[in-house]
């Protein structure tokens, strides 16, 4: 390569590397602000501030949903597997809101660390499959639960491949 071109190539690489380092440090410094929501464990530990608008995210705990009969009020708990936080909301929930589904709620933490939400969004996961497959997997999961202890492998999550049972239903 011509020495002049080599020189220019070095400049080009320098620009890319230097700007990457600068942006990398910048985002590292701001990493807490880049997160869209606080997890329940951060809220329980007192990492999340009270009385300011923030978002909390997690999975809706099974059996925790309470609805009012005479209004759109709904209360439920969200968990990250370690801790859980109560969320209270009055309004229309997204279609995908359900027990065991992930949500992100915007609101203010009160003194009891209950989130008074003004907006609840459903957080869809990366799993896409036809209804028959989902049904088949649910059945397979239940069968495996029943056989627990008889050397069956641990149930794989939806995001980890597909168990072989699904094949019978896959048209």
């Amino acid at each position: 390569m011509h020495p002049l071109r080599k020189q220019r190539l070095k400049w080009v690489l320098l620009i890319v590397v230097a700007s990457s380092i600068a942006v990398g440090l910048f985002t590292f410094a701001l990493r807490e602000n880049i997160n869209l929501f606080y997890t329940p464990i951060q809220i329980v530990d007192g990492e999340a501030p009270t009385d300011v608008r923030l978002r909390a995210g997690g999975m809706v705990v099974k059996g925790s949903i309470e609805r009012a009969d005479d209004s759109l009020f709904v209360a439920f708990r969200v968990t990250d597997g370690a801790e859980s936080v109560r969320i209270e909301y009055t309004g229309i929930l997204p279609d995908l809101f359900a027990e065991g589904e992930a949500i992100v709620a915007t609101g203010v933490l009160d003194q009891n660390r209950v989130l008074q939400a003004s907006e609840v969004l459903a957080k869809h996961d990366e799993t896409y499959m036809p209804p028959e497959v989902a049904e088949a997997m649910e059945q397979g999961h239940q069968r495996r639960e029943a056989q627990k202890g008889s050397g069956a492998e641990s149930p794989s999550g939806y995001s980890k491949g597909y168990p072989s049972e699904e094949k019978n239903y896959d048209r």
């Binding site: 957080k123 869809h124 996961d125 990366e126 799993t127 896409y128 499959m129 036809p130 497959v133 939806y158 995001s159 980890k160 491949g161 597909y162 896959d170």
Partner: peptide, 17 residues
């Protein structure tokens, strides 16, 4: 959501999709 289409490992998108 994270990527459904994975360069390494199984995609979390059913093969028919």
């Amino acid at each position: 959501q994270p990527a459904s289409l994975k360069i390494t490992g199984d995609s979390t998108l059913h093969s028919s999709m």
